[in-house]
């Protein structure tokens, strides 16, 4: 079975990354959700984030 159709017949389990309210809404409607204690990567520094992104990209390309 293809991935998307497999999702439709599986139990939905959400990983919530961002607004905490969404996590609560899913739980309140009977769904399963795990909230990530998210903070901006690289301490919210856009320049540092770009450097990390490039390093990750080049390591992913080399895999």
């Amino acid at each position: 079975m293809k991935n998307i159709n497999e999702l439709f017949v599986s139990k939905l389990k959400v990983l919530n990354i961002g607004l905490k309210d969404f996590n609560g809404n899913i739980l309140n409607s009977g769904g399963e959700s795990i909230n990530v204690n998210w903070t901006p990567p690289a301490d919210g520094d856009p320049e540092l984030l770009e450097i990390i992104r490039k390093i990750k990209e080049s390591s992913a390309a080399g895999q």
Binding site: L15, N16, G18, G24, I26, E32, I34, W38
Partner: peptide
């Protein structure tokens, strides 16, 4: 807002180590 578990992972990789059946990420 309330959350479901006492343990809140700080990354996708961390979450997947504990909860292997997660199948969708909601990103906001």
């Amino acid at each position: 807002s309330t959350t479901s578990s006492l343990y809140e992972p700080s990354s996708i990789e961390g979450a997947l180590k504990t909860y292997r059946d997660i199948n969708l990420a909601l990103i906001s």
